[in-house]
């Protein structure tokens, strides 16, 4: 399943960003470049503190880069807001809204009528494994279910790019595995381009078409790996083990560099 055909949907060229703390200047991102085709699943892995979140915040337009640019459909854009949906490790569900109303938050903000938005969301409850829980409040749901509501809210925004910032980082290993399968199913059905940030090499290998490895701070792209195996993939497949070894070696160098 090679989706790398034609011009890329998204091109990120030389993004750099430094934060100054008094007179100290901390370079967080150093000329990060990558690209993504339409419907492609990209994973970005790197040691903790490599500036992944800063990178996403730039794409989301929450902070601006010092240098570099973002090209979408071949046109320069300041950020991806309006074209992307964003999901984090924190589910950010509103405690006063039940499952259904949390899921439609994005649609509601886009000006959809509540009733028609609810109807549309109701049809998707089954795909997200939330059937029978539409009236439940977030406090009454398990961590995995809450993350699925957040995923549903993200998908229902109907954007062509999904930014996922360690979305399953707070879940236990079992739930994470299940959630990864959900994500693939949903991705297959709705077909957005995905940028997934994770520190979990296996997660990246199971999910992504292409994996970028970032260096430790200041973060830049150290290398990338095309993963063309058929899905569903098993981490125990011989060729997957080879890929994992390769990625871990790349990462380990970085972790060593980070150590004093």
């Amino acid at each position: 399943m090679n989706k790398r055909t034609g011009d890329p949907l998204l091109q990120i060229n030389g993004l750099s960003r430094a934060f100054s703390n008094g007179k100290d200047k901390l370079q967080v991102l150093q000329s990060v470049s990558l690209d993504a085709c339409e419907g492609e699943f990209i994973a970005i892995i790197g040691p903790s503190g490599c500036g992944k979140s800063t990178f996403f915040n730039i794409l989301a337009g929450l902070i601006s880069p010092d240098e570099g640019n973002i090209m979408l459909d071949g046109k320069k854009v300041p950020h991806l807001r309006g074209r992307m949906a964003y999901m984090q490790q924190k589910d950010l569900l509103l405690p006063w809204r039940n499952t259904l109303d949390n899921a439609i938050l994005g649609m509601e903000i886009q000006g959809r009528h509540k009733r028609s938005a609810r109807e549309q969301a109701r049809e998707l409850l089954k795909i997200f494994g939330l059937e029978g829980f539409e009236e439940h409040y977030p406090q009454e749901l398990s961590g995995g279910m809450r993350q699925r509501v957040a995923l549903m809210r993200t998908i229902l925004c109907k954007k062509d790019i999904l930014l996922l910032d360690e979305p399953f980082g707070a879940l236990d290993a079992m739930t994470r595995g299940i959630m990864q399968r959900w994500l693939l199913k949903v991705w297959g059905q709705f077909g957005p381009s995905v940028l997934l940030v994770t520190h979990d090499v296996e997660e990246a290998l199971i999910l992504a078409d292409r994996i970028y490895v970032m260096t430790s701070r200041p973060g830049s792209i150290k290398g990338s790996l095309q993963v063309s195996f058929e899905r569903p993939r098993r981490i125990t497949q011989a060729d997957m083990v080879d890929c994992k070894k390769y990625l871990l070696e790349l990462l380990e160098e970085e972790i060593m560099v980070g150590q004093p």
Partner: peptide, 14 residues
């Protein structure tokens, strides 16, 4: 209001 929630609303262009 939680700052992360406010950021989410901003991204959703509220």
């Amino acid at each position: 209001a939680d700052p992360d929630t406010l950021a989410l609303l901003k991204i959703l262009e509220a």
